[in-house]
């Protein structure tokens, strides 16, 4: 028997299965008579905003001068006051010499603006990033406390980790916002980020602990035998090696954090998920919006996994 077998039949089978799966979904949707309105989605990424330019006084249109796609409209008030308004050339509502009353629309200024889906994604990203930084710091400290010889430190760390891991994140977010947020007068962003950081920190702590304990005891002994103190040994010998080992689970944890951050939408933080819900209330394009939102999360998380994959390869030099 040959060691290498042909792979294309299996790839073909994979494609066929995926196609059958897609066809099944399509067929099912056909049955419930859903009207797809994909054309409503792009405007929530980027849209052309039209802002009406109104004359602030009673007066006449003195002159209209075209400048590229724009037009400069010079307005003359009854008491000889001049005002130039720039509007999009194709949106002009007036002609030269027209009599206008205060509040009449001269034309529109057209401007491309970023839609709520992009804003939501941005909110999701920065909330996740800030929470990740705090989670890393918190997790590192807790992980170290977890393996310290001091019983009190160890007790605090274990209590924290068990409490967080034993309760649902959604409930933690509610407690952070409705209880702690009320008592200490915290904004919803602080509560959301705090809850996410505390949650992820507990998991990071366990990852850090496992990573440190995976480093052979001989490494500590070698460093200590050279006269290095506990902190130097940790910082220069143990943690750099541990971090290389825990990179994949740590990255997995942060990718989870991005997904878990969707839960902060329940305390009215307008992240990607909340944006999706808001768009549905005005478009009723439920299927399209949730699919788009899912794809956006997927894009972010897969880019992140690729970055981590690349970093792992870079760090593997000394192995």
């Amino acid at each position: 028997m040959k060691a290498t077998t042909k792979t294309w039949p299996w790839k073909l089978l994979l494609v066929v299965i995926l196609l059958v799966f897609a066809a099944g979904i399509w067929g099912a949707v056909q049955k419930i008579d859903y009207h797809w309105r994909w054309n409503r989605i792009p405007q929530y990424f980027l849209y052309l905003d039209e802002e009406a330019q109104k004359i602030p006084f009673d007066g006449t249109v003195e002159s209209i001068r075209k400048v590229g796609d724009d037009a400069e409209v010079t307005l003359l008030s009854d008491n000889s006051q001049r005002l130039v308004q720039t509007v999009a050339a194709d949106s002009i509502n007036v002609d030269e010499g027209d009599l206008l009353f205060e509040g009449d629309t001269v034309g529109f200024v057209k401007e491309w603006r970023i839609g709520p889906l992009v804003y939501g994604l941005w909110t999701t990203l920065w909330i996740s990033a800030v929470s990740s930084v705090f989670a890393l710091i918190l997790g590192l400290l807790t992980g170290l406390a977890r393996i310290s010889n001091n019983l009190t430190l160890r007790g605090i760390a274990i209590t924290y980790v068990e409490c967080i891991r034993g309760t649902p994140l959604l409930v933690q977010i509610f407690i952070a916002y409705f209880f702690l947020g009320t008592v200490f007068d915290l904004s919803r962003n602080v509560c959301g980020i705090g809850a996410l950081a505390l949650f992820a920190g507990a998991y990071v702590a366990e990852i850090v602990r496992a990573g440190i304990q995976a480093i052979p005891k001989g490494q500590t002994e070698a460093a200590r035998s050279l006269g290095m103190n506990v902190f130097q040994t940790m910082a220069d010998v143990i943690l750099p090696q541990a971090f290389k080992k825990i990179m994949p689970p740590l990255a997995g944890q942060f990718i989870s954090l991005i997904k878990d951050s969707s839960l902060v939408s329940v305390i009215a933080i307008t992240d990607l998920t909340k944006s999706g819900r808001e768009i549905i209330t005005s478009t009723f394009a439920t299927f399209e919006v949730w699919l788009v939102v899912a794809v956006m999360y997927l894009l972010v998380t897969s880019v992140l996994s690729q970055v981590v994959f690349y970093m792992e390869r870079r760090f593997a030099v000394s192995d």
């Binding site: 001989g218 460093a223 200590r224 035998s225 050279l226 220069d236 010998v237």
Partner: peptide, 28 residues
């Protein structure tokens, strides 16, 4: 730590720092 700096030790399993080069092992 002061005492240990004066007492070198060599281990059965070498215990070199694998994430550092030979030179860095000696200078750390």
């Amino acid at each position: 730590n002061k005492v240990r700096a004066e007492v070198g030790m060599v281990f059965q399993q070498f215990n070199l720092f694998p994430h550092k080069t030979v030179l860095e092992n000696l200078t750390l």
